[in-house]
């Protein structure tokens, strides 16, 4: 049977992709942020997953505002990255696992998550940058991928509580797949940031740290907040933090903390790397 080894979180902002592209990881501005990925990379190498499920939001590459699925699952054997209009170089295509994806879609539907199935799906920086931060920049990726896109762009977006429930359903879906796959879940985006309005530039370090602590040990805590409350505390784009809960929900309640890293600012955001491992 497929087994979830663990999960991790990563920022996915464009600046991370730019820094990797221009080899700035050891520049003073970036050093502490990228160095903090070291233990996460080591863990991932040791975990050696066959498939990663990447929970992210699209920023106007694959989905336009005409049809905006709340939750969309890639169900293909390949996912292409593409020009987003502002200069980040498209990366090598990412292999998928269609059979595994369709199983997840069926299981989620049985568990009353009415997911949008995508047989073609362009993956944008939200998906690509965490993979590059953790695996490097490769011509051939060593792992299969399943993209799971959450709408965090056009409100109404799903609640934190709903995302945690989706994670729990995702966990059941994955662990009911008959093949012996090792799976790791990436929860991307966040933490606090706001890109526009007079409050642009908001970072809430205290709230970010509290989110990391609670999502690790007591994720239900996050479900007390409405999306309005999260945006009040963490900024409009800080709402992306709800995607961490999809990852967290898929893991065991007593998942072990392997690594915690927080840095601010990275561009306009607070950035957190959390690695959690299921008890075997």
């Amino acid at each position: 049977m497929a087994r979830i080894i663990g999960g991790l979180t990563s920022s996915h902002i464009p600046a991370v992709g730019n820094a990797i592209e221009h080899n700035l990881q050891q520049e003073p501005y970036w050093k502490r942020f990228f160095d903090g990925y070291g233990p996460a990379k080591d863990w991932l190498k040791k975990a050696d997953p066959d498939v990663i499920v990447v929970v992210y939001n699209d920023h106007g590459l694959n989905f336009f505002l005409d049809k905006m699925p709340t939750f969309a699952l890639g169900c293909a054997d390949i996912y292409h990255n593409a020009d987003e209009g502002w200069g980040l170089k498209p990366q090598a295509p990412f292999p998928g696992d269609a059979q595994f994806s369709w199983h997840i879609a069926e299981s989620l539907m049985e568990q009353e998550f009415d997911i949008c199935m995508c047989q073609e799906m362009l993956v944008d920086h939200g998906f690509v940058n965490p993979i590059r931060a953790l695996y490097g920049t490769l011509e051939k990726w060593p792992v299969k991928t399943v993209p799971l896109a959450v709408n965090t762009v056009q409100h109404p977006v799903p609640t934190a509580a709903r995302c945690l429930k989706l994670g729990k359903a995702l966990g059941k879906a994955i662990e009911s797949y008959p093949e012996d796959l090792k799976v790791v879940i990436f929860g991307t985006g966040g933490l606090s940031h706001q890109l526009q309005g007079e409050r642009a530039g908001l970072i809430n370090v205290d709230f970010d740290i509290e989110c990391i602590e609670k999502i690790a040990t007591e994720p239900e805590w996050m479900t007390q907040f409405s999306n309005s409350e999260i945006m009040r505390l963490a900024g409009t784009e800080g709402i992306e933090t709800i995607m961490w809960l999809v990852m967290r929900g898929a893991l065991q309640d007593d998942a072990k903390i392997i690594h915690k890293h927080y840095h601010a600012p990275i561009s306009n955001t607070g950035a957190g790397v959390l690695v959690l491992e299921n008890q075997s």
């Binding site: 007079e198 409050r199 409350e229």
Partner: peptide, 15 residues
């Protein structure tokens, strides 16, 4: 109207 309408300096991209 929404709970987020009175967050200062903030414009939520809603319907």
């Amino acid at each position: 109207t929404h709970d987020y309408d009175d967050i200062p300096g903030t414009y939520v991209f809603d319907g």
